[in-house]
Design a protein around this nucleic acid. Structure first.
Lengths: 256, 256
DNA sequence: GTCAGAACCATTCATATTCTTTCATAGGTT
DNA sequence: AACCTATGAAAGAATATGAATGGTTCTGAC
């Protein structure tokens, strides 16, 4: 049997049962223990499953697109995304920044009547065919790998747009403000902030205390942060001083 | 068996099954392993399929518009696209219009060092990760289904850009000029024409004599038309009067 | 606690499969 | 003729596989 086909089957079984033992996979697939182990290792590294002693458990929701090998977002990111979408009302004009977390937000936007503005090619491709969403793409130089449009073109386009809310991601958060790793990106994001009434930052707890190459903006600019449960108490005060509402995306069954 | 024909068959089989093994293709097509491998390599580079060890999987990727991937490009369109790309030199700045034929052109652009400007989301998604291509997206209101950015935003963005060549599609060609079915689209295409030194029209022979809702431009604007063999002789004179070079993509599947 | 046995896992190695590269040939074009 | 492209065959490289080995973690009895 071909590698991808077998791995695909493993995912299918794992998704169905939630958890599979190694032995069961061995007998069901007709492959050796070694091979199955190697497959589990691979699928773990791509984030599709979580290896555990004696088998593996399936991660995340069911819409896994295995063929494209797109990395599955962590369950933290999914929870943050879900919570963020709850904050958005029908009819809003939402400006969506690039990034893996905002891509998850876009997934959950499906079904809501909205105007969506974005400079992210993956997000645009995702929302393109949704009749309930009016999509406006902010053009510019398309940065490889991430597929985000940046640069002067994007800044100029943003100057002529207005949104009720910006959903932004970041490379790091400190008391000094937000950071990101790319100067062009920061320039574009600054203009996004100007174009929006309200700034909602999506950031998992690992971003707190992180610093990156370029300073993006002071904390005060942000209206609310949606994050996960792992934010240390010391930050609460810092955020309160900056008048930022901290929204912790609830979640029980944490894996791993 | 003709090259194009065999590759079409591979695509057909791959689409039907989602995944095909190399061995199966070898026996089903009656070609050697080497040949099939070469075909798979080619179809991978054009973004139609994804090679994997032991075979290939069809890319029913969400990146490409649903409608366009429903009916795969006809071999006419593929030939037209291939011929068009032969006209484009390395280092050019190419402005690519939306449409199924121009999407095929984009597939064949892979591997050439170019600047590509486009307002088509499917084209951008295709070229996004190609390091040899500098991609600039022309933003605007994203028209559903086709995934093309249109409207004032796009027109304004185009005003600040310049390209050595526009590769354009059309809804119809008559002695009165070119036509397209959407007023917003026509407006954007007019600005594209202004932004480019040279206008290359890609149109299969069925477009000749067709008229559509909106008049786009007079014939004289076009510098050359790449088409297939089915263009009636009566058109030759018409095109000659408009000083348009007619480039017929050969039917044997041969390049050059 | 700690000891033995069992289950599970990482690593290594030989083998098998698949892939890439190279070369020679056939068939068509200039 | 020279030239180009497509093709198939074959050698060597790369990768996947299954079995074996030895190490680690779990379990239950003492």
């Amino acid at each position: 049997m071909i590698v991808d086909e077998r791995r695909s089957k493993i995912l299918k079984i794992a998704e169905e049962l939630g958890f599979v033992s190694l032995q069961r996979l061995v007998s069901e697939l007709g492959a050796s223990e070694s091979t199955v182990r190697r497959d589990l290792e691979f699928l773990d590294s791509t984030g599709h499953i979580q290896r555990t002693r004696g088998g593996a458990s399936f991660l995340g929701d069911s819409q896994v697109d295995f063929d494209t090998r797109r990395r599955l977002a962590s369950s933290e990111k999914q929870r943050i995304a879900r919570r963020t979408v709850e904050l958005i009302s029908e009819g809003e004009t939402v400006l969506l920044d690039g990034g893996t977390t905002t891509l998850e937000v876009a997934r959950y936007l499906v079904g809501k009547s909205l105007q969506v503005l974005t400079n992210s090619l993956p997000i645009a491709a995702l929302l393109m065919n949704r009749p309930e969403i009016e999509l406006i793409f902010i053009g510019g130089y398309v940065y490889p790998r991430t597929g985000v449009a940046l640069g002067e073109q994007s800044v100029e386009a943003l100057k002529r747009l207005h949104a009720t809310r910006l959903v932004m991601s970041t490379g790091g958060i400190t008391a000094d403000g937000l950071f990101n790793s790319n100067a062009l990106l920061v320039e574009t994001e600054r203009q996004m902030i100007r174009a929006a009434d309200r700034v909602t930052l999506v950031a998992d707890s690992s971003k707190f205390g992180q610093r990156a190459l370029s300073h993006l903006c002071p904390l005060e600019v942000v209206d609310e942060i949606v994050t996960d449960e792992g934010v240390a108490e010391e930050w609460w005060q810092v955020l309160e001083r900056a008048d930022i509402r901290l929204d912790v995306a609830g979640g029980t069954g944490r894996q791993g």
